[in-house]
């Protein structure tokens, strides 16, 4: 069984990391490549770069950012945010991304998952799902959680897996930014619906939250602010996971 992965997420706009980056030891705290290497050195297993721009200029800047990160980073990274179609995804992969995450585009054009899986392999294709709790259960949202897609989450992830998604990035909109921990009930609900890895996202703040996510069936845990503000160290999280008997990648001190 592969190690549980710790995945810091960088929100990028016009080539700069935004949202609460607070590192004192970086020359340029907004530089995605510098921050990426810093997280790699602290033990991150993988990174997610999220394009939060909505403009064409922003997209072109993102390709340049991906190229610069790929130049210096020797761990895998996923790029998501505003990937609208096959050519967007192809450009990001060609620029050096290991995987692309699709959210709204996959809901509006599900066969896109198949086209990408056939062209690049399903290991490159991540389905990002933003989930909100509602009276009818866990509901899929699109457009940065602004719209209900009219899909129940298990139904959607199972279909996406069959179409070619190789990983699920599962975000609880309700928990995002709350620091109350990952939504374990959501994870436990979705886990039996797919066999591909699930990355838990939204609300993780303490090592115990990551342990709970792993125990609920997640293969990885993603967070942003807690790492940017150095509230918790990646190694602390990994030590807690290891103590709970969950395999993690910890460098041996020799």
């Amino acid at each position: 069984m592969p190690a549980f992965r710790i995945v810091p997420c960088l929100d990028v706009r016009a080539g700069r990391v935004v949202k609460g980056v607070n590192f004192r030891h970086l020359r340029d705290s907004g530089d995605p490549a510098e921050l990426a290497v810093r997280y790699r050195n602290e033990g991150a297993d993988e990174l997610v770069l999220l394009d939060v721009a909505a403009t064409l200029e922003g997209r072109l800047a993102m390709l340049e950012t991906v190229r610069r990160v790929a130049e210096v980073l020797d761990i895998p990274f996923t790029v998501g945010g505003g990937v609208r179609g096959e050519e967007d995804a192809a450009a990001l992969l060609a620029a050096g991304a290991d995987k692309v995450a699709l959210n709204t585009a996959a809901v509006t054009d599900p066969p896109l998952l198949t086209r990408l899986a056939e062209r690049f392999g399903s290991q490159c294709v991540v389905l990002a799902v933003d989930v909100r709790r509602g009276p009818a259960g866990f509901q899929v949202t699109t457009h940065a959680a602004g719209r209900l897609a009219g899909l129940e989450v298990c139904e959607w992830v199972a279909r996406a897996e069959a179409l070619g998604a190789g990983e699920i990035l599962l975000t609880s909109v309700d928990r995002d930014g709350t620091g109350r921990g990952f939504d374990e009930e959501l994870l436990a609900t979705v886990r039996p619906a797919v066999t591909v890895p699930i990355v838990a996202s939204g609300g993780g703040e303490t090592p115990a939250h990551f342990v709970a996510a792993a125990q609920a069936g997640a293969d990885a845990g993603l967070a942003a602010t807690i790492f940017h503000q150095a509230r918790v160290r990646i190694e602390e999280i990994k030590r807690a996971l290891a103590a709970a008997g969950i395999p993690v990648r910890l460098e041996e001190r020799t």
């Binding site: 592969p2 290991q123 990983e167 890895p197």
Partner: peptide, 10 residues
Amino acid sequence: ERVPHMGWCR
């Protein structure tokens, strides 16, 4: 087992 086999392994 889960396939593709993906992730960090010893």
